[in-house]
Design a protein around this nucleic acid. Sequence first.
DNA 1: TTGTAGGCGTTATCAC
DNA 2: GTGATAACGCCTACAA
Lengths: 351, 351
Amino acid sequence: MSKKSKSPSIRDIAKEAGVAISTVSYVVNNKDLVADDTKKKVLKAVDKLGYKPNFIARSLRTRKTNTVGVIVYDISNPFVAQIVRGMEEIVKTRSYIMVLGCTFNNASEEERQINVMVNQFIDGLLIVSGSDNENIYKKILAKKLPLVFVDRELEKLPSTSIIIDNALAMEKAVDYLFSMGHRQIGYISYPMGKQTTIKQRYSGYVRGLEKNNLAYNSDYVIMDEKFTDKELEGKDMDITFKLMQDFIKTRKLPTAFITISDIIAYGLIKALKDNNIKVPDDVSVIGFDNIMFDDYMSPPLTTVKQPKKMMGITGMNLLLDIIEGKNTENKRIILPTEIIKRQSVKSIPLN
Amino acid sequence: MSKKSKSPSIRDIAKEAGVAISTVSYVVNNKDLVADDTKKKVLKAVDKLGYKPNFIARSLRTRKTNTVGVIVYDISNPFVAQIVRGMEEIVKTRSYIMVLGCTFNNASEEERQINVMVNQFIDGLLIVSGSDNENIYKKILAKKLPLVFVDRELEKLPSTSIIIDNALAMEKAVDYLFSMGHRQIGYISYPMGKQTTIKQRYSGYVRGLEKNNLAYNSDYVIMDEKFTDKELEGKDMDITFKLMQDFIKTRKLPTAFITISDIIAYGLIKALKDNNIKVPDDVSVIGFDNIMFDDYMSPPLTTVKQPKKMMGITGMNLLLDIIEGKNTENKRIILPTEIIKRQSVKSIPLN
DNA sequence: TTGTAGGCGTTATCAC
DNA sequence: GTGATAACGCCTACAA
């Protein structure tokens, strides 16, 4: 097998055009220092030999790779995929390159990936994941590497984040259910590790209850460790389904459930249906995220919409701004949420 | 704001340990040429200064980046996301880095991305997309850059591909429907551009019809240009839904539909339901891909399973093998499919 | 406006 | 076993 054919270097162009190396560099980098006809000669040579500046060499010299790292917990999760899609859009238009890694919320895997990327390689890092270990991020911060979190934020360290007001979103969900006549409102969530979003949502749920003078009933609240079992990557739907199968048989049901993700809501609804409990006639369900399948479920899922793509877009733009020195503060950008009313919530006549 | 703190270079380590640069290099790269106590000294210095070899410099020198490019048409498509997830798994275990780009089946965007990546930057390329323009790939092939297609293959050029037998899969779908008593079998697909998968599936559909002595009825076949409208990125479900709304009102329906993706099946089913046509009682539907939501639809979707994650795993392993020189032939790996029987297909009693 | 030369951090090829 | 040194391809003072 023949070798990869070697591409022409800046030297070859200089020789071909009969000019100095630096002249070629100026032309290639659009520095307006070169006489027009010299420029033409150079461009002709570039074209003839098909010269492309060597990305690696340039990076070594400039200490800039035009590459950003994106670390997510699971790219096959529709919520995440949508965020990444937004990021990709920006990366593309601003001519950066995006490196992707999945961690499945495994802290050591996250650390490994961050180390690989950070190691004099990426210009900035975007994290849509959340290990329980803030020490990992401390190192990045210490290196002054641009770092932006999406759908996460740090508790103790100052951080740049694109988030929604998770507590408020949940509070509004409770309000909505309350306004529809529900007085027994259940809650299904991952257990509370150090993920701020999960904690905030829970506090929003509790706050919503209090605000509407509803008693907190632990029978109605499920926050099971199984959700975060490392062996069960990306199987949230199936886990919820199984979990709820048990739950339904052993406990009293509320008239409505709030879930922290549409995926969990899907699992819940299936379990409910399988036990001949009608949604929304017997039990109402409200999801979170507004992923693209909600409209196609039976019943179509009422949910709290997160501006997923916009979160990706905003996060990536902010990161690139920071990289380019346009923006250096520890911003905390809060994007709006909205309850999308479909058919999985039914109003209960008051009596 | 202070500058990014500069990391120590191999030179710093050499100085600290009182040895030559090359010695440090040997130690760092595990070349067994160094005396044990010299090694210890070096390692100590490495540890003390927190030295990490500079990835970029190394790449410049070795002409290897340990980076592979992955080009997909849409990361937010669950089928694609699952493939990418498989790839990510392998990338991780074989210590490569993965760069991702989405093209939305836009040929010029695909070309742009390929150019960016190929430009002396990636060690190999994995494509899960398919422009109509084989010229783009010719260039890559000419450069001898390792290139693997997943769920695609080239028509005129020899290529390395991980695919399923699309024609056979569709033929089996027809067989299955026939065995369930269906004699009017419709087909919903993207229009046939140059994508081999789409063509092959269609030919499988036709073959299945012939094999079972069923007449081809163009009234039952929908292959609309709207599916590939560039403006409608990733909206297959909604497009199908609208398309079928019209279709249902104007044409006679078959007793069963085969679709080329689960996503399209979802759109179809919703349109059917909205028009009070029951699935599967009035019309059966069979999807393609077996994405993770199938089980949660009403009715759960019968579908042709593609081994998505395995396609990603196999493709990435093959690509890395080629990069590492373990494997250089133009392989064409065909992975098996399987009909997953759920509840969207009903048997029709023969009369 | 153009040319020269030094250096980015490695690895690889030689000597010693 | 170890050390010096020349690339890799580019950018950028600085000199001319």
